[in-house]
Design a binder for these strands. Structure first.
Lengths: 201, 201
DNA sequence: CTAGCCATGTAATCCGTTACATGATTGG
DNA sequence: CCAATCATGTAACGGATTACATGGCTAG
């Protein structure tokens, strides 16, 4: 009844912020290079947009977790080089040691599938086939990344960790691919004896 | 160069809206029951909050895709019963037939792992072990749901489709679980010969 | 000359959760 | 009587993408 109190009630989910902090920690200095890193190395389990990165970078400076030295060399486009402060390093370490939160993921194909009863089976089948192909390509891409990683001497410190992340992506995608085969089979089973209700459509 | 035109440039990602439309399509009539359905049946690949459901429901009515009949029976809490209009049914069918968009998912564990080089291996190992346990529990939960589904006569139309979604969840989680074993093994390999840089912490 | 990469940034908009606020009915 | 379940809704916040705006350097 009185309610309305301004409780600071356990802040949560600052993922992107710590992603940026982490990339600063690995020595990336510009917003641009962070975006690149996410796109090329983290793409199958993370994403980031400039619309978040640059504001976060400025926040970090405001809060004393990072420093920014603008670099105005002639013959170079102006750029801001960011670096972690000790305080930033500390927060990063603290976050790294905490158990990760797992945010629930949304899988639109499965959502549609849950309404599958109202859809002609041919369409559902096509969706599953397309998804299988998407998975196959993703698995291939992971295999390629893995091969590349293994032939790179400079990354030896990061290598085993990056390898793990790629293998997780590959394992998950491969499982989904296999599941598609299963699902298609199950669907063919329905199709034989089944009355699909989309006929009323 | 001319740009600046007010293009209606291909609207995207209306996932939750269509989830609601779909649930209307399967005969769910109240916001409350939709939330329940998501929580009990779709939970491992979708989520929904009242904060979205109720506003969406009102929007749908405004746009003529659904109707709302408030029901004020004595001895019953007031509730609004929503139903699809033909126009709503049409939009739902159109969406169901479209190939799903796959939004990239974020996996915080993998993000932390990508910074693993800066973390004591003991901590990383613990994270992986915890994740393995989470996966194991999820796999078990899926197995239970599957068993329940198979013993339910009323759901025979939805049954094969719901089964598919559960099996996907199970397959993915099982793959992740297996991957954890792999990753832990790889980690033990590093640990033997490895210099972890967190020593400078 | 021009495409592509380097590089930074903002504003609009959308999407989604959380917390709050309310309250009736039912079963133990 | 108390807890659970049914039931509806809003406000504040937080988070993320998209589109726009700008512009220099380099290699072909």
């Amino acid at each position: 009844m009185e309610g309305l109190a301004l409780s600071p009630p356990a802040r949560k989910r600052l993922g992107s912020r710590f992603a940026v902090l982490g990339m600063l920690g690995m020595g990336l200095e510009t917003g641009y290079s962070m975006k690149k890193h996410v796109e090329t190395n983290l793409r199958h389990f993370w994403s980031a947009s400039y619309g978040r990165i640059y504001p976060i970078l400025r926040e970090l400076v405001t809060e004393g977790l990072a420093t920014c030295e603008p670099e105005a060399k002639p013959g170079r486009r102006r750029r801001n080089r960011y670096k972690l402060t000790p305080k930033g390093q500390e927060q990063l370490n603290a976050w790294l040691a905490e158990p990760p939160e797992h945010q629930p993921h949304r899988h639109e194909l499965l959502l549609k599938l849950s309404f599958g009863r109202y859809v002609p089976t041919a369409i559902t089948k096509q969706m599953l086939e397309e998804h299988r192909e998407v998975c196959r390509l993703a698995v291939d891409a992971c295999a390629k990344m893995e091969a590349q990683l293994q032939g790179d001497a400079k990354l030896h410190r990061d290598q085993p960790y990056w390898l793990m992340t790629i293998r997780c992506g590959r394992a998950v995608r491969a499982a989904e691919q296999a599941w598609c085969d299963d699902a298609i089979e199950l669907l063919d089973g329905i199709d034989g004896q089944g009355s699909d209700e989309a006929s009323e459509m």
